[in-house]
Design a protein around this nucleic acid. Sequence first.
DNA 1: CTCATCTGTAATTATTTTTGTTACAGTACA
DNA 2: TGTACTGTAACAAAAATAATTACAGATGAG
Lengths: 135, 135
Amino acid sequence: MSNAKFATALHILSLLAYSKGERLSSEYIAGSINLNPALVRKEISKLKKLGFIASKEGNGGGSYLARPAERILLSEIYEAVKSVQLLGRYNKPNPACTVGRQINRHLDQLYLNTEQSLLAALAQQNLQDFTNKFE
Amino acid sequence: MSNAKFATALHILSLLAYSKGERLSSEYIAGSINLNPALVRKEISKLKKLGFIASKEGNGGGSYLARPAERILLSEIYEAVKSVQLLGRYNKPNPACTVGRQINRHLDQLYLNTEQSLLAALAQQNLQDFTNKFE
DNA sequence: CTCATCTGTAATTATTTTTGTTACAGTACA
DNA sequence: TGTACTGTAACAAAAATAATTACAGATGAG
């Protein structure tokens, strides 16, 4: 991942967890992350679909956590935002070569296993644990 | 990582391991990966600096493994090619905000731990193990 | 000793990804 | 009924990645 989606999502969720139930506007959140409000809304949209966040439109609206921070694992956040493979892209190798023909299959296997380890590691910590670090 | 550096490096090394000591030209390797020879040479250059590969210039030249495939861990290959953080980039948050001010520090910590798990997982397998999968 | 075949590297361009911006319809409260 | 929001789309800008070209220098074959 060479994008900031994970950091952004975790920032949004941390803010919401940190301010216990209060509705935060995308403008406010964007101000804290130092990012464009429209971008923040896009991220929020993703996090809504996955049930982490709920939001209210209109005057006085904003976002808040849809479930307790204890019940959001960092691994779930990672899964929500991951757009590319953990270890990067594949090539489109030459099928006439023994190695070329098979390598993507083996990479699939390897990436799968590797991602499992990563998820297991991230699942050790939930959003509340992470938010507790802020003082 | 949204580049194909890891797949490329592993492909190069697999070819070299697979063809036991034979010198392979960058052109040949590039043909198997389906990539530009100059790009392949750049990758090789990196892998040479780390002592995985040696090469010979001039007529009849090419690359070969500088140490036995058993002694190259996949984790080392990952370390060789990693250019970006595993979980992606940070933002430059607003220091006036409690969360914004501290989050990158906490992300550092988290990323560090996460990368440790990843490395441990990758270290379970060496280049020979991986190459054995090809038939 | 000279030609053909390679590596190593730099410089440049093209492509793709990622981020940022603007705009606006629709919602909801006061 | 105005104001403050969300939700999206469309577009532009910037950054990362890949591809191409070029060429100096190494090396072995004849």
